Amino acid sequence: MTIDENTDSDTGTDDPVEPALEFAAEPTDGRAVVLLSGGMDSATAAYAARDRGYELCCLHTTYGQRTEDREHDCARKLASELTASDFLRIETDHLAEIGASSLTDDGMALEDADTERDEIPSSYVPFRNANLLSMAVSYAEATDCETVVIGAHSEDFSGYPDCRPQFFEAFERLVAVGTKPGTEITIDAPFVDWSKTEIAEYGIDLGVPYEHTWSCYRENEPACGTCDACAYRLQAFQRIGVRDPIAYERRPSYTDG
Rank of each mutant, 00 (worst) to 15 (best):
T2V: 14
N6W: 15
T7M: 12
D8P: 06
T11A: 07
G12T: 00
G12A: 02
D14Q: 09
P16V: 01
P16M: 07
P19T: 03
L21N: 10
F23M: 15
E26S: 12
T28Y: 07
V33I: 13
V34K: 03
L35N: 08
L35V: 15
S37H: 09
G39Y: 01
S42M: 07
A46C: 12
Y47M: 06
Y47A: 03
A48D: 08
R50E: 13
R50L: 12
Y54I: 14
E55F: 05
L56E: 04
L56S: 00
T61V: 15
T62E: 09
G64F: 02
T67I: 09
R70N: 09
E71Y: 06
K77P: 09
K77F: 13
S80G: 15
S80C: 14
L82D: 01
A84S: 10
D86A: 15
D86H: 09
F87H: 13
H94R: 14
A100K: 15
T104S: 09
G107C: 07
A109L: 15
E111R: 12
A113I: 02
T115L: 14
T115V: 11
T115W: 00
E116H: 09
E116P: 01
R117L: 10
I120N: 12
S123L: 04
V125S: 03
V125K: 02
P126I: 11
F127D: 14
Y139P: 05
V149E: 06
H153W: 01
D156V: 03
S158V: 08
P161N: 12
Q166P: 07
F167N: 06
F168H: 10
E172W: 04
K180P: 07
P181C: 07
E184I: 11
E184T: 14
P190L: 03
V192R: 07
D193S: 11
E198N: 09
A200N: 04
D205Q: 11
P209L: 06
H212S: 11
T213H: 05
S215P: 07
R218Q: 10
E219R: 14
P222M: 13
A223Q: 14
C224H: 11
G225Q: 06
T226F: 08
D228H: 01
C230N: 02
A231W: 00
Q238F: 00
I240M: 02
R243P: 04
A247Q: 07
